[in-house]
Design a protein around this nucleic acid. Structure first.
Lengths: 137, 137
DNA sequence: CTATATAGTAATGATACTATACTAAGTTGA
DNA sequence: TCAACTTAGTATAGTATCATTACTATATAG
């Protein structure tokens, strides 16, 4: 049920993005969108936050650069590194995701009540610590 | 967090099975073990219950037949079909899975309290209806 | 300044599927 | 009853999403 719940909500979100014209974004890209700073992040940091390999994030960066969601720019502090910076188009996606999550939260709160909704969050945190979503600057 | 919670618990379960000597069973095999009747089921039925394609289940049957977890026998009611029957070894796995789930439930109940545990189940049901695990005969 | 560590990339492979097409067997309706 | 259709399982190929390893360029520590 955990897996099914994830897949269903992820597909709903992807469908909502598609309706808004973002039709090249797939569920896995959430690993990047959910862990990139608005001012840009290094690939290694995104990979670590997302809990996936650098190679996996690197491939997403390739795709999202091609489709115009991120740019690669030199990191002034480390010539090995590149700053992955979200474009305006990506910021639009982040806003839509935020709206989607807020709507989902409202729906669950309404359907379950505040207490059981809190139970869901606490339970997920008990099952998957170190995964708590952090707001990105 | 839904995805992470699933992956972590699935890996824990696979590790527990491995410790019990069932070291060829992988997460995907849950689609079969979770949807097969003790008296045998047809591949198509298992696939439909699990929500995956016939081909995917067919491949798992190949693997689990090779490793001694299921047998293929003729379905007396339909000569096109074959009954996929769990062996004693598979029944041992099903028992271990049942024990694992019971232990997980006890842990969550203890950590969260009965009310919030109920919240988790209700929330998952709200997010993923038609996925409620059914006991198999 | 040498040894070691780190950032990103490339190549390969593993895992877990789907889609399509096929054969054999069952069902249905004129 | 038999032609049209459907269904069960299998075979083949392909796709999506990752990890592992090894590599190059750069950085850092002693």
């Amino acid at each position: 049920m955990l897996l099914a719940a994830y897949q269903l909500t992820a597909r709903e979100l992807v469908a909502a993005l598609r309706r808004a014209g973002h039709d090249t974004i797939r569920p896995k890209h959430g690993a990047l969108f959910g862990n990139i700073d608005l001012g840009g992040s290094r690939a290694t940091d995104i990979a670590q936050r997302a809990g996936v390999s650098k190679a996996a994030i690197g491939e997403m960066i390739d795709e999202l650069e091609t489709t115009g969601y991120v740019t690669r720019s030199a990191d002034p502090k480390d010539r090995r590194a590149k700053l992955i910076v979200p474009t305006a188009r990506a910021r639009e996606v982040l806003q839509l995701v935020s709206n989607f999550n807020a709507a989902l939260e409202r729906r669950l709160r309404k359907d379950l009540g505040a207490t059981r909704y809190a139970g869901l969050r606490t339970a997920l945190f008990a099952l998957a610590p170190d995964t708590e979503p952090q707001p990105r600057r």
